[in-house]
Write a protein that binds this DNA or RNA. Structure first.
Lengths: 189, 189
DNA sequence: GAAATGACCGTAATACCGTTTCGGTCTGTT
DNA sequence: AACAGACCGAAACGGTATTACGGTCATTTC
């Protein structure tokens, strides 16, 4: 396998296991069976290497989310499935989990930046779907960026944050009911 | 003035200026012109003193919010005015500002607890308004707790969080438009 | 004699600093 | 030309001596 790939795999493994701060370039070099200097022929520094790994993950995340869409299903069914998939990915994918943990405990700036750029990408992704819905005539014209923001934040609030202050999680039915009645209903043509 | 009152004022001043962690009981005693031991005849410990101050602030906040309601205005007009007032209070009131800052930087547990209990109280406050709207026949019956949660979180997201990732704040019109079209419209009878 | 005080106590946080670790470079090697 | 790993300065870590803090209680005040 080519050395760049080896390095990427090693870095992904290390970032997933130890987070950004606690993975050292020596560590990555060792896992990749490569001299440390070699890493710097492919990536200009630790942060760029990290960025590559994160971006690869964002790609996977979009793919996985995309795959949950069902041909012929309504906009809100697909939107719901896709966003739930995004949230699930976030709680499932090793690297993502580690980054959220690191952001909470360590406040590593590079990690904070990565997480906000991931969120931006997610919002762009959702906004794109909304625009497609509008173009296909399924949805009313709207400020897609704003609606994507409101929608995604609402999902995060209902799925993740509610249970932090209430002892039982909301059921998926409660969530779909309230959102179908509010945000989604305002979108449909 | 009675000593309990002196102590409360001193504590409020100190917590507002320095936050929870950085105000010392000696400090409070000095400002209040009182021996440290005297504080303990009125409050069993620092945390209880803090709790009293916070609760007093929550009372003020509710009062201020209440006052912005206009007799005869529609539910959503009043709800909007009241929630905007709550958010403004949060960004204006010295103690509140300090607590949010301390939660972000220091993670003082007592402060975190206080902030979550404040949020709980706000949500109860909003849920109460919704229930009154339902009782008066202005609103459809609904899960008031859930709607209050969604509504408040949406406001926080649109008013405070949007500008963290986008360079310009949303205008109040944009906010009312999007919420009137989504959450509020689903509530109205 | 009830209320108030502040010196005092044990614990926990802070400041200090010698040592280690890390990201990145650069020269030698294959 | 591609790679390796010893090397560098800066920044992080850890151990410890010192300080500051919340809370108590014997003494004082009125």
């Amino acid at each position: 396998m080519d050395r760049r790939e080896e390095i990427m795999l090693a870095a992904e493994k290390s970032f997933s296991m130890f987070g950004y701060k606690a993975t050292t370039m020596d560590q990555v070099a060792k896992i990749a069976n490569v001299g440390k200097g070699t890493i710097y022929t492919f990536f200009s520094n630790k942060e760029e290497l990290f960025h590559s790994i994160v971006w690869k993950m964002v790609g996977e995340m979009k793919d996985v989310s995309e795959q949950t869409a069902i041909e012929g299903a309504s906009f809100q069914e697909n939107a719901h499935a896709r966003i739930m998939q995004l949230l699930k990915f976030r709680e499932t994918h090793q690297l993502f989990i580690k980054l959220i943990e690191e952001e909470k405990e360590l406040r590593t700036p590079a990690v904070g930046d990565a997480l906000t750029s991931i969120e931006k990408e997610i919002l762009k992704f959702i906004a794109g779907k909304i625009e497609r819905g509008v173009a296909k005539g399924e949805l009313k014209p709207c400020n897609s960026e704003l609606i994507a923001f409101l929608l995604f934040r609402s999902y995060v609030a209902l799925v993740n944050d509610w249970s932090k202050t209430h002892d039982e999680q909301l059921t998926e039915k409660q969530i779909t009911d309230v959102l179908n009645g509010t945000i989604f209903s305002s979108l449909l043509v």
